[in-house]
Nucleic acid binder design. Structure first.
Lengths: 187, 187
DNA sequence: TAAAATGATTGACGTTCGTCAATAAATACT
DNA sequence: AGTATTTATTGACGAACGTCAATCATTTTA
């Protein structure tokens, strides 16, 4: 928990009392490869924080999976749309390897939002972080070609490419595996 | 200001004292058609709230404009990436018609964040709202074809189509005007 | 180590897209 | 109303994409 506490405190400087309250909300959970943290149709009522492992976010459309996000250690994650609107998720969250996460339930967050500026601040900053990630990717779709998107990914986090099969990268980029293979060949 | 106050209070129930503080941060500004609220290279240090009018968010790539967002009355807007990271914007914000906005500077927000849970809450909820809009659009890029994106837009807010020239809709959908014209023909 | 399963590449083909140029339609202006 | 400007459509063509199927490579598992 030490490491985790340090990371949270980098985001917002909590008093020891505030931390004690917050930490009771976080539950540590371990997952094995292939486990589902969230299934389509469920309400995503939590925010997760990756301690170890690798998780993916995917939707099933017309029978096949589209992976639209990957989460690595130190990432916050959630089906944030489902979380905020309190509606069922269309997505699944799967552990791609064994790993551990910290899970914080919405109910707990909301219960304590009123108590402390810092809890609100934490909620705000998590929202902002998740926003930024989405935003950059959307811009890339609006402005860049698939090839450019791939090159930017290559440049930004080359580690993804080793950690994740190429066909998932392809759907992350919004294209088919065959197209990605051909883009790579053209380079 | 009445209308505006009502709308803010729907988001977060402020005391009269809190409202008095907050309202001093909001400046009302009027724009004429074609005016730029933000220009590429500037830091976007504010959040806007559309009272009347219609605004667009566009980037210039290789000589031509790509419109990536439209904002209507009751929308919050900003180059939120620039706002959050305090870096220069790559975008422009333009008034497509005459209109009025309420503008709140980041410095003012941050100065008062510590004072009140409610200010933080407002910041958080604005972040969440802007996030949701981005998120839904990104999903559409990852999952839907251009045709499907057009049909969803048609379904979700048909009003956009009357208010905005088609070639801007096209870039909003991430395609060329010619392609959109052909998609429409195919339907 | 051999067989099975998974992932990546390649080929063929049809569809859609982007680009450039021309024309048609709609809107704004005087 | 008539002209100018802006916006939308259409045509032609090449490039990139998606799909389906086959093959090759890599990794897992027995």
């Amino acid at each position: 928990m030490k490491e985790f506490k340090k990371h949270i405190k980098k985001i917002v400087s909590l008093s020891e009392e505030e931390w004690d309250i917050l930490k009771n909300g976080f539950k540590k959970i371990s997952y094995s490869k292939g486990d589902l943290i969230l299934s389509e149709g469920e309400h995503c009522d939590f925010i997760g924080f990756v301690e170890t492992g690798l998780f993916r976010f995917y939707i099933i459309k017309e029978g096949n999976e589209k992976t639209t996000d990957f989460w690595f250690p130190l990432d916050f994650f959630s089906d944030y749309r489902s979380f905020l609107t309190n509606t069922p998720s269309n997505y699944n969250i799967e552990a791609m390897r064994s790993g551990t996460i910290w899970k914080l339930k919405r109910a707990y967050m909301h219960k304590h939002y009123e108590e402390s500026v810092n809890f609100n601040k934490l909620g705000r900053i998590i929202a902002e972080q998740i926003f930024l990630m989405k935003s950059l990717r959307l811009d890339s779709f609006l402005i860049d070609s698939p090839k450019e998107r791939y090159l930017k990914l290559l440049n930004k986090d080359p580690n993804i490419l080793q950690a994740v099969p190429q066909y998932m990268i392809a759907s992350y980029l919004g294209i088919t595996p065959e197209s990605l293979s051909r883009i790579r060949k053209r380079i």
